[in-house]
């Protein structure tokens, strides 16, 4: 198992640090769920990993490379971020959207990514006409077509009902295992995260950060804010 993402004593935030310094690593083949209440910094952390947020202290490594030494283009080739709150233009077709993940035209890779997410039937449809569940899978396809080793998803279950949320978690689990990717998913669906993730990363409002196996964190009472013990 390769260490794909390593966070060392990081503090981040727009103006002042949101959390206490913490360490975290993500290895290939595993799914880690990022949990926490609204406003603790989950989305900011996701942005930090792709170089779009301010790092106050600490270091971030992608593989063996320091993130600060990488250009936006190099980051693009190593890490994909799926944003749930994406402004979608009215006209774009699914096939054109998924192609955005490629630097040069390759229709076969687009089809392959859509097949993995079971959305090939929507190839020629406008993205905006899809349901929330269908759209979230197409957004995932756009990230998959990039074929990066790291896959980050920022609240992809935000607008999904229970069956669609479960389906997405199962799909991510399968992708992580079959393609040896490291997957970090932030979500408010705590029970689904407990069921389908390998480890948890929890941000608390008091600034503390915990990461580790589910049982370990449950025993510490880290998820008491979600009324789970």
């Amino acid at each position: 198992m390769l260490k794909l993402l390593e966070i060392k004593q990081c503090q981040f935030g727009a103006e002042k640090p949101l959390l206490n310094p913490f360490d975290f690593s993500l290895v290939s083949g595993e799914v880690v769920a990022l949990l926490g209440e609204n406003g603790v910094g989950k989305s900011t952390f996701m942005n930090l990993c792709v170089g779009n947020a301010k790092l106050h202290s600490g270091e971030i490594f992608l593989g063996k490379q320091n993130q600060l030494d990488l250009s936006y283009r190099e980051l693009f080739r190593k890490i994909s971020l799926v944003r749930s709150h994406l402004q979608i233009p009215e006209r774009i077709l699914v096939k054109d959207f998924v192609s955005l993940g490629l630097e040069s035209r390759n229709f076969e890779r687009v089809k392959s990514a859509l097949e993995k997410t079971e959305t090939l039937e929507f190839l020629n449809r406008p993205l905006i006409t899809l349901s929330d569940g269908e759209r979230s899978r197409v957004l995932l396809a756009e990230a998959l077509v990039r074929n990066t080793s790291l896959l980050l998803l920022d609240e992809p279950t935000a607008f999904l009902d229970v069956p669609h949320s479960l389906a997405l978690f199962k799909l991510l689990k399968r992708i992580a295992q079959e393609e040896n990717k490291g997957v970090l998913i932030s979500t408010h669906q705590v029970e689904h995260a407990l069921r389908y993730s390998d480890r948890l990363l929890v941000f608390l409002k008091n600034g503390n950060v915990y990461s580790g196996k589910k049982d370990e964190l449950l025993n510490k009472g880290v998820l008491s804010w979600a009324e789970i013990s």
């Binding site: 283009r73 693009f76 994406l86």
Partner: peptide
Amino acid sequence: LRYLNLAPFGDEFVKDHGIS
């Protein structure tokens, strides 16, 4: 061309795809 394709999705999406 790549920037113009990505621009309608917002600045963060453009940056996510490696473009200034």
